[in-house]
Every structure is written in C-alpha cells, then in structure tokens.
Write a protein that binds this DNA or RNA. Structure first.
Length: 937
RNA sequence: GCUGAAGUGGUGGAAUUGGUAGACACGUUGGACUUAAAAUCCAAUGUCCAUUAGGACGUACGGGUUCAAGUCCCGUCUUCAGUACCA
C-alpha cells in the first residue's frame, strides 16, 4: 500500500470532528492543562504558511500533554471585530458581519485541514452578541469600581460613596483624576445628583474625560499609544495628531506598580517582560514645587535627581503647559504664542524626527528657587513633553545634556555643582562617581545621600516629596467606529448611565452608512434605532427620545483590545448565559498554563489583559491575578520575495547576473512564477499583467534569473505561500513537520518550499517501515537490542525537546530513528507501536492511520506516552585512549551505580581501569592521568 | 543613544550547556535503475595540503581562563528586534 496522505488526512479529520475527540470536560480525575493560542483576526486574505506556526507548536504541546495523562483545554476562536471588515464595508456597503462570517469560514476550513486538536465546541467570537455581552458586563464592573491605594486594590464604588457621605474625601487615598477638590460629608450630601456623579466619575476605573488623544484624521478615530508606530497609525500608516476629545478611558495607571511587580511571578520571555517594563516606565525621584514670582501659580516638576536641585538655573515648560498663557509677560506673549503655534502645527512625526534642533521661547516670568530663593527664568521648549510627568522640568544644565544644550543655545548660566568635574564641553550625567558641591546643605554628599537629604529638606519646606512616576498613561477606550462592541451606556443630562447588566447584550444597531455622520459624529450616529427606554429596558427608535424616560445611547464603540482582554477565561465556560463563567469552571481551569503568540502584542493585548485580570482578581472573580503562567513568542515565517529588473523607462528586463551600469528598477514578481533555481517562467510573467505582455527579456545562459530578498510575507509583495497548496501537494503532516523543522520556534526564518521534500520523504519512509506492497508488515518479533536502543533514545530526546519547545530537533530525531529502524529491518510491534505515539503530536494523521492499522479502535490521542528506560541505552564499557598534548587522556563512557568516590579510586589505581557496568544512566567520566576532571551525567 | 537577542559550511540549522564542531535537511556533484523523464536508491560534499596513508586550519574579530572553549571572562565589530527629547 502506498502513502495516500490526502485520503488519510481527510479521513482522520472527519473522525476527530465526528467523535469530538478533543472535546475537553470541565471536570476530570486527570490533572488539568490549558494550552492557548492568540486567536486570529479573520482577514479576507485567509491564512498564509506563516500564520499556523504558533498553532502547530501549541497543538504539538497539547497533544503531548494528552499523552502524558492531562485533561487538556485547547480552544480556538476569532477576534472578529476590527478595522479591515469595516473599511471593506465602507467601500462596498457589505455588512461587516457578513464579510466576517465568510472570512471565518475560510479560516475554519484552512485550520481544519492542518489537523489541529482544537476543542471547537468552545469557540468564541468577539463580535458575537453572546460573547460581547460579557465584554460589556466587565465594562460596567469597571465603571462601578474605584482603586483604593490603601488596600491596593479595586473596590466597589458603593464603599466610596459611603465614605464620602460620612467623612468627605479628605482621607480617601485613591487613584483618581488630579483635579478633584477636597469636600466634606456636608458638602457631599448637599451636592445635586449630577454633581455627585461628576465627582464619582473622576474616581471610577473607567471614566469619561476630556483628554488629549491621538486622533487619526484618515481613519476618523482615536488610537491608543500602542496603536501608533513611529508617529503614524499602525494600521495604514496614516498621520496622527493630538486633539482634545471627551472619551472613555481605562485607569490602567492605577495598576502600574502591580503590573510591574507581577512580571516577576510569570514565566514569560525576558524581552517581552522588558518591553512591558519600559512601557510602564517606572522612575523614582521627587516632585518639587516652584513658586512663580509675582503670581499665585506654582510649577510642579518631577525629577529623578533631586540631589542636583542647586544646579537648577532655569525652568522649562512644555509649550502646551496650562500655566504658560497665565504667566507670560506682555513683552514676551507674542513670541510665546508664535512658538506655541509653530509647535502645535508640527505632527508627532516631525517632532520625533527632528530632535537635534533646539528651539524655545522665554516667557518673561521667573520662578523662585525653593532654597536660595534665586530667580529662575521660565522658558518653554518642545523638548519637554506635555504627556510625561507634569509637563515641566527643573533644568539642571550641568547634569543633563538636553538642559545643557538648551542653556548653551539661549545663553543661560550653567552653574557647576559637581566637585572636580569639567563641564565646559558637556553635561555630567554620571550619578555615582562624584561629590556634590556649591549646594549648601548637600555639599560633600554623594548621590544616594544627597537625594535623601534633598527630599527631606524639601518636605520640611513643604515644597516637595519623594515620588515615583510612571510613563504608563491611562488607555483611551472609545473608538469612532461601527464594527466594535457598543457601550452599555446612555446619557441623562450629559452624565453617563450604565444599563443594568441583566439587559445585556446591547447589540449593534443597523446603519445605512458606516462612515461618520455629516456632523462629525461616530458611525453609530447614523443609526435610527439607538435610544434607551428606561421603562421597557429596550433599545428604541431615536425619535422617542424625550429626556424623561428615553435617552440617547453612547455613539462610540470599544477598541479592538476590549474583546481580547478576557477571552481566555470565557473559553472555560463559553456557553454560560448567566455568568461570565461559572465558579466551578474557573476554579477547575484556574489560568492559562501555556500561551503561545507573537511578540507584537507586548504592550497592547498582553498588557491590557493582565490589567483586566488583576481587576477581576480584585473583584474575587478569578483565582489568579496573572492570566497566563507561561508565554512563548513564536517567531515569524518570512517570505522570500522575487524581483525582476526593469530598465528605467523601458519595457525591458535584465536577468539578475547581467545588470551592469544600467539604471534598473526592481519589481516584485509573484513567487509562484519562479522555480527553485531562481529561474523565471517568462510566459507566466507576461500573462500576469497587461503591461508585461510585450516585455523583452535579456537572459543569461538561456534563462532569466530573478533577485531574491527575505521580507515579511504579504500580498503586496507577492511572496505569500498558501498552505492550501502545500497541504494538497505534500499533506498536512508534512506542513506541520516542516514548519517545525524550519528552525527554533522563537526565531524569524524565511519560508522555502523546496526544503519540504526532506520531511515529506521521511513520512514516506515511515510509512514503508510499517507497510510494503503486501500491506502491513508489522510482526510480533522480539525487539533486538539495537531496536530498543533506537526507540528509547528517541523517547528521551523527543520528551526533552517538547518540554523545552525545541520542536525542530525532534523532527531530526524522528528521521534518524526511522533510518536506523529501516536499516535494522525492524518489524517488531514492540518498537513500532510506541514510536507512533512519539510522532503523533507532530504528524497526527499518519500516526492515527498506522495506529488503526495496528488494530486499535481508539484514537492514538488516548494512548499513554511511552516510558523511557535508560537501561537500553547502556553501552558495553568503552575505554577510549585519546592522545592530547602529549599526555594520555581517557574518556570512559559508563553506566553505573558507583559513587564518584568509587570511580575516582578505581581510576587512581590504574589509568586503564575498566569499570564494570551495573546501573542505569550513562555517565561520562573525563580523566587525565591520575586525576578525574569531571563526571558528566 | 538605551534595552534585549544573535553572529557556526553554498543554505536552514544541530552540538547532551565546558568534553570527537557541522547532527538532520535542502542544495550541489557523481553513480544505479529507466528508451527517456519523474520517482526511488547509493556515494561524496567545511577549507587547504597530500596519489594514498594522513596532516594543518576552522564557530564574526582580538585577547584571556582551562587538560579541554562555538559554549565562560574582557575588549572590538556587525546584524536583527523593541524603545526613544521620559526630566
């Protein structure tokens, strides 16, 4: 019988689906294990060979864990809200739900043909109302919570209201807006309901506030910081400007310290943890208050170097700083305004690109040094960012290069406070190797002591205190889009009200157009039925709005990360209509044991999810405040693009090797037109596009050679390789093995279809090990010593590889085992049966087929992983004399229960001692004459 | 600039973590089978010297530790990724 992979794979995929082989139960005698993939956004282009890489790895691990006796949860779903479906809808009028459904079908077909062991009965889709009901529910929980710094966790807003009503807010230590005023219990009780709501909004974990946001005019929406790359939008690369808008925000900053500390408790990659640490951006220092001369105004600054307080010679404010217009003098106001306008016009990108040019303006005002009372000129400059710290700095030119350059440029004094340091050329930024001088009470102190002393003195003066600052900003949660979760929010007199959770979900309304309205409202402004009736608790026609019982609903929708911030918990109990998940389900599955996904989500999804998980932990909903114990970043599979070279202004193409001094333009050409020797199929190319129909080619050695380059796989680069084709030609098992064989999981590596013949011929050889022309050739023959050795070294290596996620090397191990057993003419069932179990996580279809041929009626996935027996690896005693540097050296490979002392004694007695074999694991003893150097193993 | 990862044949990559560098695969070359091609199988394949036997060199570069270094230490260079006027 021949290896008909297409038939075999179809057969077993059908079998798995019909028998629900991989359905996980929410209780079991077995230990649980939760393996999760980052769920995909179902794009219209379908999957390319790069997408399944992580899924294959997690599938291998999940199948391995099943063999190892675990009850494995391995679900999959779709992150199905998002921009592309909406933009397609804008262009075509097609409802995003329709395109999304189509795309999901394609994805599902493509995923199924690779043979994943997903439990599809637990599928979730973020755009499904039964799912986003719970996204809305969490939003309501966040709205109804505040962050108590004393207990260091989120608490119900009711506890805060009780405190306000009994003692006011003076003693409350909460994470809240900066501008809350102090009030007493009497004040509170005298406020109107709206007044109270307005105050509470400043404390809630999700709040409505006028914030400066990243506005992308081309996309017509705001973006979170992590959605902006190099000053342009991550999607589409459109310019982004700063704009003030009223938006929902998430008070993630309340969790900054816990998000930072939590990193120490989870097994995630160092680079990813480092990214999150940088994003959170903790810095320890002090806040210092400077009085402005002749004004009531005070300037608060944050500094990490309070020890350099006597080196301050001026102040710099961000141009956008709110004090600027107040304090600028009449003489300077024109210059100041001109400068502010000039910087406002510059886009984020310009400002980032142009960091070398020093610019600024003098406000004419002076601040007062807290200790010396000396006047300090107040400048504005765009090197100070409005969005970081307080948007103002105390400038210490001798200790900070930017302040130094600014002072130099505008001829401001540069006092030196570092003993014996020359600052005539540049600032001195090193904090550890000097002593402070010219600094009154700090004279003679070193950095650490000076910082403490400075903070102590500032506190005594009431003009400063020790402070920790975080770069992490609150996350904007409103998007001016159609295809996202609607907020469960309506407005009474402009104040947001939550819809009671029992009336969820609030489903997306139908709209005629997916664009913003003519008045600039978000797309939901086009909806005709989008008002909340508080008597019937239903969404009703807008015309019924009367501001007594029917009110307008929120027009924004939630951002892409809303739906992905809790999906991993929902998989535990996805059908539950009464709760987000049952207590039993979460207590059973606890948290994700292994999460595999791309590192591009480091500061987005992975940070927001940790935030929501911690919040849900505070509410007592989940047993762990980290959602994923271990996380692995799979690398990306890159495409190998091909180029043809067109002579400038002509329809002539030069083969790669003969390009001389001509000006040629490289053009991406579809990789399917090129063979493995980089030769172009000229006819296919000519038929590709009309403009190439009459193209002329200059060949080398009779062929046209293309150029090659490794790039990200993308439609526009014509380097996409479709897994459908690979599965058709070589089978899913070959695809799975080859993706693993390509290299280490975490690494970025180029795809090269040519190499797949290696793993494919391995599968054919494997098949032949079990079958010949007469059918199955397995016998009950007793395994030979060599057979057993091959099997057990394979068991050992494969188990180690899977535990270490070194899937690439196990593929080699299988090939070696297969070759060895073929050479040994092994037909023994005793060997070949366990071998199948080893291979089945990697190549499940062929393993299932051969397994059933061996007479099993149950799926191979129910089989136990073979047990490793080291005794089969034991060699007869060997004694290798190796000449080294004129000395004799021995490497004894042995297996023994002898202690190190026994070996030592034996070797010391006689250099050529042969130690009798007695035990299990082989050991290697490195010996030089008279001395044991090392015992390995 | 800072942070992190990495640098091994023509190529993708192994190397039990200090113990025979280049496993395994692709590619290339030669051979077998075939009318022929495909498929399959066999052999060779780090570089240099040598007819052979064999020898020398070799893991980005320069030093060091060690009986022993791709692996550890110091310095230099290069590449990739993230981040960036963060006070």
């Amino acid at each position: 019988m021949k290896y008909h992979f297409n038939e075999i794979e179809e057969k077993w995929q059908k079998y798995w689906a019909e028998n629900q082989t991989f359905k996980a139960k929410n209780q079991s005698d077995k230990p649980k294990y939760y393996v999760l993939d980052m769920f995909p956004y179902p794009s219209g282009a379908g999957l390319h060979v790069g997408h399944p890489l992580g899924y294959i790895a997690s599938d291998i691990y999940a199948r391995y864990k099943r063999h190892k006796g675990f009850n494995v949860l391995h679900p999959q779903g779709y992150d199905s809200f998002g921009l592309p479906a909406e933009q397609y809808a804008i262009q075509t009028g097609q409802h995003p739900a329709v395109t999304t459904e189509e795309n999901i079908k394609t994805y599902r077909r493509q995923l199924d043909q690779i043979g994943f062991s997903f439990d599809w009965s637990r599928e979730v889709r973020t755009s499904d109302p039964n799912y986003y009901k719970w996204t809305q529910w969490i939003f309501i929980q966040l709205f109804n919570s505040w962050y108590n710094r004393v207990s260091d966790k989120a608490e119900s807003i009711d506890t805060l209201i009780a405190i306000f009503a009994s003692e006011g807010n003076a003693k409350v230590n909460a994470e809240c807006d900066d501008d809350v005023e102090v009030f007493t219990a009497e004040n509170w009780n005298s406020y109107s309901s709206e007044g109270q709501q307005e105050i509470l909004l400043k404390y809630r974990l999700t709040y409505l506030a006028e914030t400066e946001v990243n506005w992308c005019p081309a996309l017509g929406t705001v973006l979170a910081n992590d959605e902006i790359v190099n000053g342009v939008s991550e999607r589409g690369g459109h310019p982004v400007i700063r704009k003030k808008m009223t938006q929902w925000s998430m008070r993630i900053s309340a969790y900054a310290e816990r998000l930072l500390q939590g990193l120490n408790t989870i097994d995630w990659t160092d680079s990813l943890k480092e990214s999150q640490r940088n994003w959170i951006g903790k810095s320890v220092g002090a806040s210092v208050t400077f009085n402005v001369k002749g004004h009531d105004a005070k300037i608060d600054v944050f500094t990490t170097r309070p020890d350099t307080i006597f080196g301050v010679s001026f102040m710099t404010l961000a141009p956008e700083h709110e004090l600027v217009s107040q304090i600028a003098t009449d003489e300077q106001i024109d210059e100041v305004n001109a400068y502010r306008e000039a910087t406002a016009k510059r886009s984020e990108r310009d400002r980032m690109a142009d960091v070398k040019t020093i610019s600024g303006a003098f406000t004419g005002a002076y601040a007062e040094h807290p200790f010396t009372k000396a006047p300090l000129p107040i400048w504005i400059g765009d090197y100070v960012l409005a969005g970081y710290g307080t948007g103002a700095v105390m400038s210490v030119p001798c200790g900070d290069q930017r302040d130094y350059d600014f002072a130099n440029h505008f001829n401001i004094a540069i006092p030196n406070i570092f003993e014996g340091i020359d600052i005539s050329e540049e600032a001195f930024g090193d904090k550890d190797n000097t002593v402070i001088t010219n600094s009154d009470f700090l004279n003679g102190l070193k950095y650490k002591k000076a910082v403490k002393t400075a903070i102590y003195e500032l506190e005594k003066l009431g003009q400063g205190e020790g402070k920790t600052n975080y770069r992490l900003r609150d996350a904007v949660f409103s998007r001016q889009r159609y295809w996202g979760e609607p907020f469960p929010v309506y407005y009474i007199k402009g104040m947001p009200q939550m819809i009671d959770a029992k009336h969820l979900p609030i489903t997306l309304p139908e709209v005629e157009k997916y664009l913003p309205t003519e008045t600039g409202e978000p797309p939901l402004g086009n909806a005709m039925v989008w008002a909340w009736d508080t008597t019937t608790h239903t969404v009703v026609d807008n015309s019924k709005i009367n501001d007594t019982s029917v009110f307008p609903l929120e027009l924004n929708t939630m951002p892409g990360w809303a739906g992905s911030s809790q999906y991993f918990n929902r998989y535990m109990d996805p059908e539950n209509d009464d709760e987000i998940f049952s207590r039993d389900a979460i207590n059973y599955w606890q948290q994700v044991d292994l999460y595999i996904g791309g590192s591009e989500h480091a500061t987005g999804h992975l940070l927001y999810s940790r935030f929501w998980q911690k919040f849900m932990f505070d509410l007592g909903l989940v047993p762990h405040d980290e959602f994923a114990k271990k996380l692995i970043n799979q690398g990306m599979i890159l495409g190998t693009s091909a180029f043809v070279y067109r002579v400038e202004d002509q329809n002539k193409f030069l083969s790669k090797g003969i390009i001389g001094n001509e000006n040629v333009l490289p053009i991406h050409v579809d990789v399917s037109f090129v063979n493995s020797s980089d030769e172009l199929d000229i006819d296919a190319f000519k038929n590709w596009r009309p403009e190439f129909k009459n193209a002329e080619f200059t060949l080398e050695n009779g062929v046209y050679k293309v150029g090659r380059d490794v790039e990200k796989m993308s439609k526009s680069k014509y380097n996409v390789v479709n897994p459908d084709k690979i599965v058709e030609d070589y089978g899913a098992d070959s695809l799975r093995l080859y993706e693993m064989f390509l290299g280490p999981l975490e690494q970025y590596k180029p795809w090269n279809t040519a190499g797949i013949t290696g793993v494919h011929s391995f599968l054919k050889k494997l098949w032949k090990l079990y079958n010949d022309d007469n059918g199955l050739k397995i016998t009950e023959a007793v395994a030979t010593k060599d057979n057993l050795k091959t099997l057990h070294k394979t068991i050992k290596k494969v188990a180690e590889d899977i535990e270490n996620f070194s899937f690439n090397t196990s593929v080699s191990t299988f090939m070696i085992a297969c070759n060895e057993l073929t050479a040994q003419k092994c037909t023994s069932k005793e060997i070949l049966e366990p071998l199948l179990i080893l291979i089945s996580p990697y190549a499940p279809h062929i393993a299932e087929e051969l397994w059933s041929q061996l007479g099993h009626s149950e799926s191979i996935s129910t089989a136990d992983f073979p047990i490793f027996d080291a005794s089969h690896l034991v060699e007869s005693t060997k004694n290798y004399p190796i000449s080294f540097n004129g000395k004799m050296r021995f490497t004894l490979e042995l297996s023994l229960d002898l202690s190190k002392d026994d070996i030592e004694a034996a070797v010391m007695a006689d250099e050529k001692t042969i130690v009798q074999l007695q035990g299990r694991e082989p050991k290697k003893v490195i010996v030089v004459p008279g001395k044991i150097v090392n015992i390995v193993g």
